[in-house]
């Protein structure tokens, strides 16, 4: 993945009006390369009964998705339509390729499992040194006998039917079972099955936010600002390293901003040691065909965004 970093195409799945990224490599990529760290929304399989810490997929703002598409770093896949149509048109070779890729994934998973199992066994063996003799006799050969024995233990774990009598039974079986007993996996993405289709039309209806693009172009990171009563919280770098510096709201160029909103956000921003940032793009108005566009029509490009900060002075 080192070489195609620059032109990596991130698949953004549009599912039920939400823009999700399922591939962990994609998530890392957009965070590192494009400064977009979105919100994890999935349940963590390791700990499914809590919702404080969440995992894949990552949900993007529609504006963020649009930004990535505009940067030609991503494409939108309307999953409900795309997925099925691609699956239906799958030919035999593709099917075989897919099965092969699944197998390779399973093999990888098996190796990982085996490794982990061996390590844990070794650890337990260390712990149980002063334990009774029969334990030592059982664990001893398991460690020393090498790969074959590791496989047997995997079989035990994956099969699940040998709950209590695993130790004696597993020994004779291993060599025959290894291939079929590869762990069953649930792939997080179906990237191997589905080819990228960057020409999807779904991107066109995405709303764009010039302020977001403006901030992103200047290296700011953005997370949702709901808890501060704004559109975004703006970080000067990765949120792992910084606190948010701004609490940003995006407006239309001619939009009337209620005074109370300014006050609320300004006051809240200062109370949480941030600045309240508001910005709008001039070409918003141009797109809408505003009356006095022609006055400075050829002045700005796409980036004609003006940004202001408001601070509560009397606190």
């Amino acid at each position: 993945m080192a070489s195609p970093v620059a032109d990596r195409q991130v698949r953004i799945s549009k599912i039920a009006g939400r823009y999700l990224v399922f591939d962990i490599d994609d998530v890392v990529h957009i965070r590192r390369q494009h400064g977009i760290c979105s919100v994890f929304t999935g349940t963590m399989p390791q700990n499914p009964t809590q919702n404080v810490f969440l995992g894949l997929p990552v949900e993007l703002y529609a504006e963020e998705a649009r930004l990535l598409v505009d940067k030609k770093a991503a494409y939108i896949a309307d999953e409900s339509a795309d997925h099925l149509s691609q699956l239906k048109t799958l030919d035999e070779t593709a099917r075989r390729e897919y099965i092969a890729s699944l197998k390779s994934q399973r093999r990888n998973a098996q190796l990982v499992f085996a490794d982990a199992k061996a390590r844990s066994l070794a650890k337990h063996a260390d712990k149980r040194k002063p334990s009774p003799r029969d334990q030592v006799a059982k664990d001893g050969p398991a460690i020393s006998s090498g790969p074959e024995d590791r496989k047997t233990s995997i079989v035990d774990g994956a099969g699940g039917d040998t709950l209590f009598d695993s130790r004696p039974v597993s020994k004779p079986i291993p060599k025959t079972v290894t291939v079929e007993a590869m762990p069953a996996i649930t792939p997080t993405t179906s990237n191997a099955l589905i080819r990228p289709n960057p020409s999807s039309a779904a991107a066109l209806e995405l709303p764009s936010d010039p302020l977001l693009a403006y901030l992103n172009a200047r290296g700011y990171f953005i997370t949702p600002g709901l808890r501060f009563g704004g559109d975004y919280s703006v970080y000067p770098g990765d949120p792992f390293r910084f606190h948010a510096h701004y609490l940003a709201n995006s407006y239309g160029w001619d939009e009337e901003i209620p005074m109370l909103d300014l006050l609320t956000s300004g006051r809240l921003g200062t109370a949480v040691k941030k600045s309240y940032l508001l910005g709008a793009a001039r070409n918003d108005q141009r797109a809408a065909g505003g009356p006095n566009v022609s006055a400075d029509g050829d002045k700005g490009g796409d980036e004609d965004v003006r940004v202001f900060c408001v601070e509560w002075a009397a606190m």
């Binding site: 600002g225 808890r227 501060f228 009563g229 559109d231 609320t264």
Partner: peptide
């Protein structure tokens, strides 16, 4: 908006 409500409530 929701963010407005959250902001007011937080203030």
């Amino acid at each position: 908006s929701w963010s407005w409500l959250m902001g007011v409530n937080r203030v």
